Amino acid sequence: MPELDNIDRAILRLLAADASLSLNDIADKVGLTATPCWKRIKRMEEVGIIKGRVAVLDADKLGLPVSVFVSVETSDHSAEWLARFALAIAETPEIVGAWRMSGDVDYLLHVVVQDIAAYDSFYRKLIAAVPLRNVSSRFAMERMKDGALPI
Protein backbone atom coordinates (compact mmCIF):
# COMPACT_ATOMS: atom_id res chain seq x y z
CA MET A 1 0.00 0.00 0.00
CA PRO A 2 1.51 3.33 -0.99
CA GLU A 3 2.16 6.04 1.54
CA LEU A 4 -0.30 8.90 1.33
CA ASP A 5 1.04 12.43 1.54
CA ASN A 6 -0.91 15.55 2.53
CA ILE A 7 -1.99 16.20 -1.05
CA ASP A 8 -3.32 12.64 -1.45
CA ARG A 9 -5.26 13.04 1.79
CA ALA A 10 -6.65 16.41 0.66
CA ILE A 11 -7.81 14.82 -2.60
CA LEU A 12 -9.49 12.00 -0.69
CA ARG A 13 -11.25 14.45 1.66
CA LEU A 14 -12.56 16.42 -1.32
CA LEU A 15 -13.80 13.31 -3.12
CA ALA A 16 -15.39 11.91 0.03
CA ALA A 17 -17.27 15.18 0.56
CA ASP A 18 -18.33 15.59 -3.09
CA ALA A 19 -17.43 12.98 -5.70
CA SER A 20 -18.98 15.14 -8.41
CA LEU A 21 -16.18 17.72 -8.25
CA SER A 22 -14.41 18.13 -11.56
CA LEU A 23 -10.77 17.21 -11.90
CA ASN A 24 -9.91 20.88 -12.39
CA ASP A 25 -11.76 21.87 -9.20
CA ILE A 26 -9.91 19.21 -7.19
CA ALA A 27 -6.56 20.16 -8.69
CA ASP A 28 -7.14 23.87 -7.92
CA LYS A 29 -8.12 23.13 -4.32
CA VAL A 30 -5.01 21.01 -3.65
CA GLY A 31 -2.57 23.24 -5.54
CA LEU A 32 -1.83 20.99 -8.53
CA THR A 33 -2.47 21.08 -12.23
CA ALA A 34 -4.93 18.58 -13.68
CA THR A 35 -2.45 15.97 -14.94
CA PRO A 36 -0.59 15.25 -11.68
CA CYS A 37 -3.87 15.38 -9.79
CA TRP A 38 -5.40 12.85 -12.19
CA LYS A 39 -2.33 10.59 -11.82
CA ARG A 40 -2.71 10.61 -8.02
CA ILE A 41 -6.43 9.79 -8.23
CA LYS A 42 -5.76 7.04 -10.78
CA ARG A 43 -3.02 5.53 -8.56
CA MET A 44 -5.36 5.54 -5.54
CA GLU A 45 -8.05 3.83 -7.65
CA GLU A 46 -5.62 1.20 -8.93
CA VAL A 47 -4.46 0.21 -5.44
CA GLY A 48 -8.02 0.17 -4.13
CA ILE A 49 -7.93 3.18 -1.81
CA ILE A 50 -10.67 4.73 -3.93
CA LYS A 51 -13.16 1.89 -4.41
CA GLY A 52 -15.71 3.84 -6.41
CA ARG A 53 -17.67 7.06 -6.57
CA VAL A 54 -21.30 7.17 -5.54
CA ALA A 55 -24.16 9.58 -4.99
CA VAL A 56 -25.45 9.81 -1.41
CA LEU A 57 -29.22 9.48 -1.58
CA ASP A 58 -31.81 10.70 0.92
CA ALA A 59 -33.59 7.56 2.16
CA ASP A 60 -36.48 9.53 3.64
CA LYS A 61 -37.22 11.30 0.35
CA LEU A 62 -37.07 7.96 -1.45
CA GLY A 63 -39.69 6.44 0.85
CA LEU A 64 -37.24 4.36 2.92
CA PRO A 65 -37.27 6.14 6.29
CA VAL A 66 -36.89 3.10 8.55
CA SER A 67 -33.30 2.13 9.33
CA VAL A 68 -32.81 -1.08 11.30
CA PHE A 69 -29.64 -2.59 12.73
CA VAL A 70 -30.05 -6.35 12.86
CA SER A 71 -27.80 -8.50 15.05
CA VAL A 72 -27.56 -12.09 13.83
CA GLU A 73 -26.26 -15.06 15.78
CA THR A 74 -25.80 -18.50 14.29
CA SER A 75 -24.78 -21.86 15.68
CA ASP A 76 -23.59 -23.02 12.26
CA HIS A 77 -20.24 -21.65 11.08
CA SER A 78 -19.70 -24.07 8.22
CA ALA A 79 -18.56 -22.98 4.77
CA GLU A 80 -21.89 -24.12 3.32
CA TRP A 81 -23.92 -22.01 5.77
CA LEU A 82 -21.68 -18.99 5.19
CA ALA A 83 -22.06 -19.31 1.42
CA ARG A 84 -25.87 -19.43 1.76
CA PHE A 85 -25.84 -16.45 4.15
CA ALA A 86 -23.53 -14.42 1.90
CA LEU A 87 -25.81 -15.15 -1.07
CA ALA A 88 -28.87 -14.07 0.92
CA ILE A 89 -27.12 -10.81 1.84
CA ALA A 90 -26.04 -10.16 -1.75
CA GLU A 91 -29.53 -10.82 -3.12
CA THR A 92 -31.42 -8.71 -0.56
CA PRO A 93 -31.56 -5.04 -1.58
CA GLU A 94 -32.89 -3.94 1.81
CA ILE A 95 -29.50 -4.85 3.33
CA VAL A 96 -27.31 -1.82 2.64
CA GLY A 97 -24.44 -2.84 4.94
CA ALA A 98 -23.24 -6.09 6.48
CA TRP A 99 -20.36 -6.90 8.82
CA ARG A 100 -18.97 -10.05 10.45
CA MET A 101 -18.47 -9.18 14.08
CA SER A 102 -16.44 -10.29 17.08
CA GLY A 103 -18.03 -10.86 20.47
CA ASP A 104 -21.48 -12.22 21.19
CA VAL A 105 -22.99 -11.23 17.82
CA ASP A 106 -21.84 -12.98 14.65
CA TYR A 107 -23.13 -10.50 12.05
CA LEU A 108 -24.54 -7.00 12.00
CA LEU A 109 -26.80 -5.92 9.15
CA HIS A 110 -27.97 -2.42 8.27
CA VAL A 111 -31.42 -2.72 6.75
CA VAL A 112 -33.44 0.10 5.15
CA VAL A 113 -37.20 -0.28 4.56
CA GLN A 114 -40.32 1.81 4.07
CA ASP A 115 -42.18 0.71 7.22
CA ILE A 116 -42.56 -1.96 9.90
CA ALA A 117 -44.58 -4.22 7.59
CA ALA A 118 -41.77 -4.12 5.04
CA TYR A 119 -39.28 -4.99 7.79
CA ASP A 120 -41.45 -7.93 8.83
CA SER A 121 -41.45 -9.17 5.24
CA PHE A 122 -37.65 -8.79 5.09
CA TYR A 123 -37.29 -10.65 8.41
CA ARG A 124 -39.43 -13.56 7.22
CA LYS A 125 -37.36 -13.88 4.01
CA LEU A 126 -34.11 -13.80 6.00
CA ILE A 127 -35.06 -16.56 8.43
CA ALA A 128 -36.39 -18.67 5.55
CA ALA A 129 -33.11 -18.31 3.63
CA VAL A 130 -30.74 -19.59 6.32
CA PRO A 131 -31.12 -21.11 9.79
CA LEU A 132 -30.31 -18.58 12.53
CA ARG A 133 -30.02 -18.99 16.29
CA ASN A 134 -31.00 -15.45 17.26
CA VAL A 135 -32.00 -12.27 15.46
CA SER A 136 -32.27 -8.97 17.33
CA SER A 137 -33.48 -5.76 15.69
CA ARG A 138 -32.79 -2.20 16.76
CA PHE A 139 -34.72 0.57 15.04
CA ALA A 140 -32.88 3.85 14.54
CA MET A 141 -34.80 6.83 15.91
CA GLU A 142 -32.61 9.55 14.41
CA ARG A 143 -29.54 9.71 12.18
CA MET A 144 -27.12 11.89 14.11
CA LYS A 145 -24.10 11.65 11.84
CA ASP A 146 -23.31 10.18 8.48
CA GLY A 147 -19.86 11.29 7.51
CA ALA A 148 -16.75 10.58 5.57
CA LEU A 149 -13.72 8.69 6.84
CA PRO A 150 -11.38 10.70 9.08
CA ILE A 151 -8.58 11.18 6.55
Rank of each mutant, 00 (worst) to 15 (best):
V96P: 06
A117T: 13
E91Y: 09
W99Q: 11
R53H: 15
L23I: 00
A118K: 09
A86M: 08
I95K: 07
R84T: 02
D115R: 00
V54R: 15
V70A: 05
F69Q: 08
D146A: 11
D76K: 02
Y119L: 12
G147T: 03
L32G: 03
L108A: 08
F69Y: 15
L32W: 06
A140W: 05
L87T: 07
D104N: 14
E94W: 07
P131A: 02
A27V: 04
F69V: 12
T74H: 06
A129Q: 03
K39T: 13
H110D: 10
E94M: 06
S102I: 05
A88C: 10
V113L: 09
L82E: 13
A34W: 04
C37A: 13
Y123V: 00
L21W: 03
G48F: 03
L132I: 01
V54D: 08
I26K: 01
R100A: 13
V130K: 00
D58V: 01
E73F: 01
L64P: 02
L23E: 03
E142Y: 09
K42F: 03
D25T: 08
A118T: 13
D60R: 13
F69S: 04
V66S: 07
V47P: 03
V47F: 13
S75P: 03
L23Y: 10
K145R: 11
D76S: 03
I26L: 01
D115W: 01
V135Y: 07
D25G: 02
D76N: 11
W38K: 08
V112H: 01
D120I: 01
S121K: 15
I116C: 07
V72T: 06
A79E: 11
K51C: 06
D104L: 13
I26E: 01
E73P: 00
N134Q: 12
R133H: 08
I49T: 15
T74C: 04
A55T: 12
I127N: 03
A79T: 15
